[in-house]
Design a protein around this nucleic acid. Structure first.
Lengths: 220, 220
DNA sequence: TACTTTTTTTAGGTTTGTCTAAATTTTATT
DNA sequence: AATAAAATTTAGACAAACCTAAAAAAAGTA
């Protein structure tokens, strides 16, 4: 497979993320996402088109090709493995890992990534709860739900924290909630949609709807 | 402190290594060392001179300034910490670490390097036995000697393997000699300068002069 | 539909880091 | 010391990845 520059990789990765939520990605969106000007994005699109990474017709928006998606998943794999490493081994906070992983993800030694994966124990999710693609680009598809939408008397596992703001992280820390924590949703109060939560060996407590909307969980 | 590009860092680092063995570094040497053409080196030198990283007068060779050396030690620190990580944690062979560390060394997050250092237990030497500068650029200066030059009845510690060829590494592995291994030099045979070596809890064995010339040790 | 606004592209520059070929300086040799 | 050889620098180009300003296309609106 061809080799891509850091800038090309940033474009590919960002297109991948943007096309998750829309049929087609626009020039302005991508420029915004990467922090460049639209004119620069147009230049890059032309290049990526000749390299068969994007489907692109002037003025018509664009999307990654199958090839492009495969490559994007490789970049995302590297990024999330490094995030896991930084968080798990170097004790970075959740909101500190991203910036450093942005640099590390472009070091593209195949061997490095495979051994890092092994060293980390083949993790399936990064510290934000986002899935880590395997070396074939496959992603564990566990259905994630907002904690605020779970029915009463269910046991769920925390899989992702949407908002990485310091105040929320502080609160989670206080409540001893982290990725992988099992929560039992005892009941829901209709008045304000707050919920009663039980963690094993700890007293029950109430969680606001606002907080529950930022916690994603999987069943079981 | 200013920020340097990957290419600038490669120049600074290579100048540092070259000036260890010569009063002054030449344009051709540096071009050779980096893998570019002399004309490109001249361009870079002009830039590094304006940034006060090198002392340079056209046609006169050059050297790093104090500032330049300090920066170089930072790059070398990153390089060797990554080498240690790759070797120690990811089980890379000694001769595989260098290439990957060449890329990783340019990821310049201060926090990353300090935490990596801590995670690794503040190692003093990389897998090749080269010293790792601390975060002030200080280097452990332990006098290293060739094993072939040690007197009889001395106990020494393996600190560096000069030749990283697969055959030598294989032999060392067989003999269970690695960095940090304590060796007792029992006696020397004048005939071929081979030496008799004892490792604690293991039978004595004979080592050729050729092998002993590739093993560096410190006293004690 | 005609006009205005927004989006996107094009045209033409800039910076960084490289190159080749030619000119210059230094070093080595007769 | 004169000349040849080697090392170094200069001059001029080029590709990558940006930019600004202007032109063109698409979308929105009166």
């Amino acid at each position: 497979m061809v080799n891509f520059s850091t800038s090309e990789e940033n474009h590919i990765k960002t297109i991948f993320h943007l096309q998750q939520t829309a049929e087609t990605v626009t020039t302005n969106e991508l420029a915004e996402g990467i922090g460049t000007k639209p004119a620069s994005v147009t230049d890059m699109l032309k290049k990526l088109k000749t390299k068969k990474i994007v489907h692109y017709q002037p003025y018509q928006g664009f999307r990654l090709t199958a090839e492009g998606e495969k490559y994007a998943l490789g970049i995302i794999r590297r990024h999330r493995l490094w995030e896991f490493f930084l968080s798990e081994k170097l004790n970075f906070k959740w909101d500190e890992v991203h910036a450093v992983a942005e640099d590390l993800e472009h070091v593209s030694s195949r061997q490095l990534i495979e051994r890092l994966d092994e060293f980390l124990g083949f993790p399936k999710f990064d510290p934000h709860g986002d899935p880590i693609p395997d070396n074939q680009g496959r992603v564990e598809v566990t259905q994630q739900l907002m904690l605020s939408e779970i029915k009463s008397n269910k046991i769920v596992t925390v899989s992702q924290i949407k908002n990485q703001s310091a105040p929320l992280l502080e609160m989670l820390k206080h409540q001893q909630i982290q990725l992988g924590t099992k929560l039992e949703l005892k009941r829901r109060f209709e008045f304000d949609n707050s919920i009663e939560i039980k963690i094993r060996n700890k007293p029950v407590f109430i969680m606001s709807e606002q907080q529950a909307q930022n916690i994603f969980v999987t069943h079981g």
